[in-house]
Design a protein around this nucleic acid. Structure first.
Lengths: 231, 231, 231, 231
DNA sequence: TATGAATGAGACTTCATTCAT
DNA sequence: CATGAATGAAGTCTCATTCAT
């Protein structure tokens, strides 16, 4: 059992003491909980809460106090897991970049056409992991990532070159317009993961994800298609 | 005993089932009570220092840096106790107003003559709590308390009307001069708490408080006495 | 003719220029206006405006910008007349103290009873010059006057001792209660000039000044009267 | 020509007769125009520097000290031009939104096909003013603009609906794929202004702007083209 | 190990005062 | 002389981070 006191006193005029306990129980208390498991779990909780906060408020408006309170741990505990605010955020972003990279590599390895490879990537990553790109795009993140330049520069270029390869392959196979520079295509492809369109269509207008994906994929592939092949 | 737990849950992750127990209790656990005691002590230290500073220098010339330094804590610590400078000062003034009001009400309830009621009030409050009136009188305070208008307007009018009532009672009973407007009397009575006279006589010239009080009370009651009654 | 541009632009969205001229004409353009006269006049305007501001807002909430704007001169011009904000305020207060002192001395010299002397003083100064005492009482002023200690200490003691003398005279003549310390009486007398009572009665409740004065004088003199004389 | 003189007289001494002349005129007097020019110039310098800082570091990492230093003025001077940090940034963003809106309206009014209208818009605004969208997209900006909600909500919806109209027109004329929701198209169109692609291609890889534009326009219009019309 | 009170650097902003025009 | 833009010291307040318990 764990206690999570979440307390926000608005204007306390009383001279008396009080203690508020919010008792949080897990849905299933399986008791397999070794210390390390607990640690991981808490880390998960922190990261989940932080992700939401980051997306909603941005790096600067999300503060450590709020996260500690939201997760139900002390601020000090946060710092046991993540020595810097920056670390917390980077820990959030890094696995998303890794997962994206993994998807890129899986896509590349598929025994299908380049177009289908890219569509696979789009389907796989659209719904969740394009997070990092949002992050990378925010000017804040640029600042934050400066201190992680080495690590970031290990992952992102691999992602870009993977995409680049699939697009080049498509050009070589006469599928994609050879007059469009590959870099242009790849940047535009990356842009598809940009969260605004997704948010607007899927979250606000409730367009089913599959429909959204198919529109997006149509838009892009028609756009880069080699139209001379139809002649 | 009165408990005011004000709970404001901001955004709790919802993967868990919540059971909320609001357990309100007096200081019992040693650990907590110790901390809480320390907290109170520190708050006392801050308030004491701030009161001195406020009286000596006024609201604007007293600055948070100086208070922090004087108390021996960091600036941030001050803000842990009092979110705004204003709050610090208001916390200083509010209990004095409350105490004054309480004394007024006690005085009113006494089964003695109006004159004795007012004398009781004078004796009770002269030595300490007339602070608020100094405050209210300074033009700064008027400005500062604008944001606390509601609270101030809850207390002060009660004080004034309480005094007004006792004076009216005295007039009806033929003790006080009916030709003096009650408002005049009550303003003059309030003026007795003005700290200059007190400071000069009691603090500077070391007049015993009781002597000071009796002079003051003499001065006032002779002043407002209905002299025609002797005819 | 003089131009006083008083301009407060709220949210200017226009890309165009504009100039606003407020032309202020004197009621009677006597053209006797030597430079020095103009200078004096402006100084008068500044002081008048500053006095109002000081009374309404206190020392810190009244700012030089506002005064300059209110008077219709540039901020720099203010500083030609008064090198420091402090100087401006002191220039405001000083003549009031002087005038008060003069009245005290006139009162003392009158060939009438001490009570009548003090009543003369009350009548003379109540309506205007008790200003300085308000000032002296505000904690701000204490700070400000620190830099003028020498000057202030030249005037105020004379005032107090003048009043002291008249009261002592009254005691010697058997008019005032010999059991009340003279210092107590004099402080209480000074307190009569405290502006709250005046404001409340005369300004808010529109009590005629003469009535107010007579009440005040009644209150005080009955209060300090030697009641044994009636025996 | 439009003049917006907004006059707010705060408390003018009333011993004088006033004649108020509101004389509105264009820059004529050399002196004033000189000063005004200087003012404008300095404001330009500040805005330029701030824009750079904002783009590089984001709202929170750009600080007023740094900008003042960078521009070579004192911090106070900054606040002479822009009362709040927010104002500085909004002043940066607002004209870009306005210019974009204007371009949208011009585009709509052109006597050409919807596709050509949108291409005109793309050509016109790509190189400079898509700034606002970057801004609007950053989570910070969402926060910042909360205080300007009214103003922002006056401009942005007009932009979106203008684009929406041109796209709908295109669908009606059988140019654009009727199976793609207009909202999808318009969001995708807006996305074209997203600065990453531009930066990468034009600024980093030095692709000529016209080439970049033509690629972009190709990509988009092929993407949304109604392909069934060729049948 | 977990806590949360304490810290203090640093951000924004104000305003008395100066000074070039 | 008069002006008012420019200055910068100083104040309030926030929040990432530390550390004694």
């Amino acid at each position: 059992m764990k206690f999570i006191p979440v307390l926000y006193i608005m204007t306390l005029k009383s001279k008396y003491e009080f203690k508020i306990i919010i008792e949080v129980q897990r849905m299933m208390t399986k008791r397999i909980s070794l210390k390390e498991t607990q640690r991981k779990e808490r880390e998960r909780l922190i990261l989940d809460y932080a992700e939401k906060a980051l997306l909603e408020k941005g790096y600067y408006d999300m503060n450590m106090d709020e996260i500690a309170m939201g997760v139900g741990v002390a601020k000090g505990t946060l710092y046991l897991h993540f020595p810097k605010k920056e670390d917390l955020v980077y820990t959030l972003v890094e696995p998303k970049m890794q997962s994206f990279l993994k998807s890129v590599e899986e896509a590349k390895a598929l025994p299908v056409s380049p177009k289908e490879k890219l569509e696979f990537l789009l389907n796989r990553e659209l719904s969740g992991a394009f997070f990092q790109l949002l992050m990378k795009s925010s000017p804040d993140m640029t600042t934050i990532f400066k201190s992680r330049e080495a690590e970031v520069n290990d992952i992102l270029p691999k992602i870009f070159s993977g995409i680049h390869d699939m697009l080049s392959e498509g050009i070589r196979e006469g599928l994609f317009d050879p007059e469009l520079p590959v870099e242009f295509m790849s940047s535009a492809f990356i842009n598809l993961f940009e969260p605004h369109l997704y948010k607007e269509m899927v979250e606000v207008r409730k367009m089913p994800l599959q429909v959204f994906n198919s529109h997006l994929s149509n838009l892009f592939f028609r756009g880069i298609m080699d139209t001379k092949e139809t002649n």
